[in-house]
Nucleic acid binder design. Sequence first.
RNA 1: GGGCCGGUAGCUCAGCCUGGAAGAGCGCCCGGCUUGCACCCGGGAGGCCCCGGGUUCAAAUCCCGGCCGGUCCA
Length: 922
Amino acid sequence: MRGLAKAEASEYEVEFFREKGFTRKRCRVGGEYFWTLNPDMDTCQDAPCVEYWFDRIPSRDPLRVGEARRLFIGFFERRGHTPIKPRPVVARWREDLYLTIASIVVFQPHVTSGLVPPPANPLVISQPSIRLEDIDNVGLTIGRHLTSFEMAAHHAFNYPDKPVYWKDETVRLAFEFFTKEMGIPGDLIVFKESWWEGGGNAGPSFEVAVGGLELATLVFMQYRVTERGYEPIPLRIVDTGYGVERMSWFTWKTPTAFHAIYPGLLEKFRDILGVEEAGEEVLWAAFRAAGRLDPEDPRSVESYYRRVAEASGLSVGEAREALMREARLYSVLDHTKTIALMLADGVVPSNTGEGYLARLVIRRALRQLLMLGAETRLADLVDLQVEYWSGDFPQLPEHRDYILDAVSLEEERFKETLRRGSKLVRQIIGRKKALDLEDLVLLYDSHGIPPEVAAEEARRLGVSVEVPHNFYSIVAARHQAPEKVRRIGERVELPDHVVKALEGLPETRRLFHEDPYLREFRARVLRVVDGRYVVLDATAFYPKGGGQDYDTGILQGPWGEARVLRVYKVGGVIVHVLDRDVKASPGDEVLGRIDWIRRYRLMRHHTATHILLGAARAVLGDHVWQAGAEKTVEKARLDITHHRPLTRDEVRRIEELANRVVDERRRVSARVLDRNEAEERYGFKIYQGGVPMEARIRIVEVEGWDAEACFGTHLANTGEVGGIKITRVERIQDGVVRLEYVAGTRVAEEARRLSDLVEEASKIVGGRSGEELLARIEGVARELEELRSSLKRYRSLYSELLIEKAREAPRVGGLRLLVFTPPESDRRPLQEVLRTLTSTYEDLVAIAVEPAEGDWATVEIALGSRAAGAVDAGRLAKLLAEALGGRGGGRGSRATLRIPSKAAGAVGEEAAKAIESLTSQQ
RNA sequence: GGGCCGGUAGCUCAGCCUGGAAGAGCGCCCGGCUUGCACCCGGGAGGCCCCGGGUUCAAAUCCCGGCCGGUCCA
């Protein structure tokens, strides 16, 4: 990250530089200051100020990615750093971030804010990270941009009373690593002065660049960004980031980073995708030019192609074509790895959140395959990545089944989208013989059809379409809406002034945690607000929270007895809402008694939820996460992430497994652990219900089955759940399935509800018991069928009769007039009858007067073709309406009107008059 | 979370803009042609036009709300 130097020059003066004889210079291209040992160095050695030339800089033997990682960790371990295991690429411990974009993310916000100590200090880590903001540049820049990469880092956390190391030692370690371990000549290593800001913190930094390639960034986090400016913070953090893939590239000195990262696999992909090698000359020309390439600037991209063309002897068009195909190949390599990493960490592709990011990468990879004309399945390519990285990332082979299934499903959906797309294009072109930018935007934005695909389809239909090079930014611009205010904090269901009045109170002692079976307790009143909001020093009343509903009960004091209606938590303070105002005052001793039946049912549903989540993970896979949950007295509900709708069999297996855990009588225990310890022991799946912002967290563990950070009250043993019945399964949105269920005695109630339902139903169809229901329903269905066909026969019989009647219908003004009242007021079959009549007699005016049921009757008028030529149905309706005191209208051969029921008898007479006058006018 | 597109016969869809009698193709059933199959020809069955409300004499069509699916963007 680059920024204007906000720091004094002195911030960058490091003892080590003085000792070694570094000098501070200014880049003659970009103007930035840098430190070097080399008196002749006049540029900062970073892209885009210089070309890549690190291929001519000596270094140690080529390192594969894994070797570079081990070299780094080994070196820093020998220098007193403790190696830390990397975290998932999905930042489940962060609520403000979907993906792990850097190693420091691992320690935010709890460690960086000072709440929790780091797991070790100093430490070394190599963290797989994902950044999608430059996804469109991947491939084009031959390796400068990757969506997934490993960020190796050494971190030191300097507390005011316990400093570890700061700028001098950091620079010293970096220099030593690059010279001694990487074998890079010291006089070619440049430390460029820079400034870093992110996540509300800031500080000076050095970017370490060699031969055009930035190999590391050394950040010294020492400020907090406030409205007033930069304020020093007590915890100063050394935050470094070394590009593992770049270290590998540096030592291999291949024309692209992909050649260094994927020896073997690159060739395999090339083969499968049918991308013939662009040739050494072209690739090296690209290498030379890529350093100066600004992918955001179309002019820069054009001049990049031109330079490659000049250096390799190709035409600009040939060079562009060759490099674009190479870029697509590299993109597919990059994206398939990212897809594997994201899915392995349990992301479910969907249209929201991190699921959307996964879909984005998958879609983009599929688009590249399409444009390369490759026939291969994306899942097969991802599978090759799973195998390729299995030694480095064991989570990939571990979750292979899920990864491949999810990719295949997305691939099918994409194909479906494309099918729909080509049809839409055909429709548009069929309609207007053209396809303009507006259409392209609509096709992409609303239907997901890539513009290239739409243009291709249009070409096939003989319509030429130009896709603007800035198409995606045109689309993006249309989405720009005014920034929405982010919702703040937890919603509190108490009046504002009550919340305000609670300030300064100590945390309420939670008797419900000390003993979840406690039904009665004594405590003292600490504060009363508005006579009915009572805070005690301790309570057994559970407040609404953690997806569990509050307790109810009674509170007895010197002032008498009051019912507790609701209980809420504000920070650590628990507030009881009473049904009436009481004359309580601080110091009063009270006796509290909770509604035990209610509480016990809530506990059963809560423990059942933990059991069920474990069962869902066991049956469906580790990608299952809780997306939401609610436990009430009546039922519980658990939303889980999953990419497909659940089958009946899966639901049955989840239910059976959950009930087995109930029968096994497993112990359920709760204890408060240090955050680091809890994460170390159970992993991040403890954060199913959200991430508590606390140093110590309460872990509820179902022995050997499930462990989650949880505030709720739980049974001591799974056996007490009594039994679990899933009552409803529903896909509530893309990637999320909702389970509803009941536990314990509620299962019996649920069973009774169902059997009552069966009884009711069988009574309606005439059975005496539920057993007969099925047979009865079959009978009813058969009977319905017979009645339908019989009704149909009668209807056609009725229209035959009317046809007969119309034969003798009186003639008015040269037209036949038939007025009748049908036996049913349903309009649909009537339309059929009218149609039959008017198609039989061309000169017929058919008027159906609805059997009167209320004050108003509907009259339908239909004309045969010749009758319609003589009389307009609309005018006829107007005249009739006028004469009979109704309203109506129509057009051509059809009209409708509503008249007072009383006038129904006069329709025939008035119709004759109206037709007479209409025909005589002509 | 927001924007946009869609929901009509078993399937794929037209009709909606501009309100006025629910359509096509495929599939299905019956018949003809044929040694038989396919093709072809003739006939037929099959619709809560997603749900609820509103406007209107009249709503698949216009308006509002909801549900479902798709899709783009955070």
